[in-house]
Computed example of a mutant assay.
Amino acid sequence: MMQQFYPQVQHSYRYELNKDMHLAAAHFIPDDAAGQCKNMHGHTYFINITIAGDALDELGFLINFKRIKDIVHKRYDHSVLNDHSEYQDIFPTTEIVAEQIWKSIQAELQTQGNKPNCLQVVVRETPTSYVVYRPKPEELA
C-alpha cells in the first residue's frame, strides 16, 4: 500500500496510533441528484484511523491494530454498503461511511479499561477525493 499522509489532529494525549487499511466495497446513492453515483458502483477505499490516549492496556497497547482492522475490514470488505443495517435509513456517502466507522471504533474503545479515543477517521474514495471525520469534543469520553 502506498504511504499516505493525512491531516494531523491537535491533541495533548501521550500516545497516538494510526491504522491504515484498504477495502473494496460497492454502494449507490438512490437519488437523481447524485448523478452517476445513483447507480451501483465500487471503490477501493483507503482508510486511516487515528486513536489517542494517555494510558496503555495490560499488553502495552492503546488497542491492538488487529482489533481495529477486524471492526472495519471484516465488516465492509467486498460488500455492498447499502446492505448494512447502519445505512438502512441514510445513504452511504463517504461522509456517512467515515462517521459510521468512527462510531464503531469509538464504541469498542469505550469497552477498554484504558479508554482511548478515536480522534479522526479519513476515508479516501478515489485518488483525488477523501473525507475527514472528527468528532466534537463532547462526543469523546
Rank of each mutant, 00 (worst) to 15 (best):
V97G: 03
N64E: 09
G42C: 11
N114P: 13
H78A: 07
K136I: 01
T94C: 15
D32G: 01
R124Y: 03
V9E: 13
T111Y: 02
Y76Q: 11
V132E: 07
I47Q: 04
Q10R: 13
I96N: 07
L56K: 11
N18L: 04
S104A: 10
A98V: 04
N39R: 14
R75G: 00
I68P: 01
E125H: 01
L23K: 04
R14K: 11
T44A: 06
Q8C: 03
Q112P: 03
F65V: 11
H22M: 10
N18Y: 02
V123T: 12
I29D: 06
Q88E: 08
E139A: 12
G35W: 06
C118M: 04
K115R: 10
T128Q: 14
H84F: 06
S129D: 09
M21L: 15
K136V: 00
I71D: 02
D32V: 09
G53R: 02
A52P: 00
D54N: 14
T93E: 01
L59M: 03
H22Q: 15
V80F: 13
A33V: 14
D32M: 00
K19N: 07
I51N: 05
P7R: 15
M2E: 12
F28N: 14
Q4K: 15
E58K: 10
H43G: 10
G113C: 02
H22R: 13
Y87S: 02
E95H: 07
Y13D: 09
I29T: 08
K136C: 08
E86Y: 01
K19T: 13
L59P: 00
A25W: 04
A25K: 06
A98F: 01
I51P: 11
K74W: 08
H78M: 10
Q100D: 06
V72R: 10
E95D: 10
V121N: 04
I63H: 08
G35Y: 05
A55L: 09
E95F: 07
K19W: 02
E99W: 04
W102Q: 06
T128V: 15
Q36R: 15
A52H: 04
E86M: 12
S104Q: 05
V9R: 12
H78N: 10
